[in-house]
Computed example of a mutant assay.
Amino acid sequence: MNILKGDIVSIKESDSLMLVFMEVEGHIFNSLLLENSDENRLEVGMDVHLIFKETEVTLATTDSIVSERNSFVSKITHIENGKVLANIRLDFLGHDINALITKGALHGLKCKVGDEFQWIVKASEVTLQTL
């Protein structure tokens, strides 16, 4: 599980949807949530953990253009090969981000330790935990 600490900087709500913007060490992430309940109300200024699964992290070359706003360039620090999947560890501002991709994708992208790649996680896959 990937976990980053951030601060809520903005919240946009429409009907039962809310888009929450968080700052993590100068980088803006967003999370798309279904509602802001009274018992777990999120507010600007709150500290939160951003939590997302390794299987929800996508890799792309650094020059790829994507629509997802949770897109950051980081260096690969470790590759663990399995029979079907590979776990790619990236260094994001001193935090480990893990991506679980197929071996075919690993070879197609020609991933090597030390290379920089863009990693992407959809806003709908980022869960928030208040601190």
Results as ranks from 00 to 15, higher is better:
Asp91Cys: 09
Lys83Gly: 07
Val57Trp: 05
Leu32Cys: 12
Leu34Tyr: 09
Ser14Thr: 07
His107Phe: 09
Lys83Pro: 06
Asp91Glu: 05
Ala86Ser: 11
Leu4Gln: 07
Asp47Ile: 10
Lys103Glu: 08
His107Arg: 12
Gln129Val: 14
Leu59Ser: 06
Asp15Met: 12
Trp119Ser: 00
Asn98Phe: 13
Thr58Gly: 06
Met22His: 04
Gly94Lys: 14
Gly26Ala: 10
Gly6Thr: 00
Ile65Ala: 12
Thr61Lys: 12
Cys111Thr: 05
Lys83Leu: 14
Val73Ser: 05
Thr55Phe: 08
Asn40Glu: 07
Phe21His: 06
Ile97Met: 03
Asp15Gly: 08
Val20Ala: 04
Glu54Met: 01
Trp119Ala: 01
Asn36Pro: 02
Lys53Tyr: 07
Gly108Val: 06
His95Tyr: 07
Gly114Leu: 10
Phe92Asn: 01
Leu33Gly: 08
Asp91Thr: 10
Ser16Lys: 00
Ile8Met: 04
Phe92Gln: 02
Leu131Gln: 04
Glu43Asp: 01
Asn2Asp: 11
Val48Glu: 08
Met46Leu: 14
Glu54Trp: 04
Leu32Ile: 11
Leu85Glu: 00
Val44Gly: 08
Asn87Tyr: 11
Asn98Lys: 14
Trp119Thr: 00
Met46Trp: 05
Ser74Ile: 04
Ile51Cys: 05
Thr77Asn: 06
Asp15Asn: 12
Thr61Ile: 05
Met46Val: 06
Ile76Asp: 01
Ile65Val: 15
Val48Ile: 11
Glu25Pro: 03
Leu106Glu: 14
Trp119Asp: 01
Leu4Gly: 03
Val121Gly: 06
His49Arg: 14
Asn98His: 10
Glu39Asp: 04
Gly82Asp: 09
Asn98Val: 05
Glu116Thr: 12
Ala99Arg: 02
Val24Thr: 07
Val121Ile: 15
Gly26Val: 13
Asp47Cys: 09
Phe21Asn: 05
Glu13Gln: 15
Val126Ser: 00
Lys5Ala: 03
Phe72Cys: 11
Leu85Met: 04
Asp115Val: 02
Gly104Met: 14
Asn70Lys: 08
Thr58Ile: 15
Leu128Ile: 04
Ala99Asp: 02
Glu116Leu: 13
Ile101Glu: 11
Ile97Val: 04
Leu33Tyr: 05
Ala60Gln: 01
Asn70Leu: 10
Lys53Ile: 00
Ala105Asn: 13
Cys111Gln: 06
Glu13Pro: 08
His107Ser: 14
Val20Trp: 00
Ala60Leu: 02
Val113Ser: 11
His107Glu: 15
Val73His: 03
Ser10Thr: 01
Asn2Ser: 10
Ile97Asp: 01
Glu125Cys: 07
Val84Leu: 14
Glu54Leu: 03
Ile3Val: 13
Ser14Cys: 09
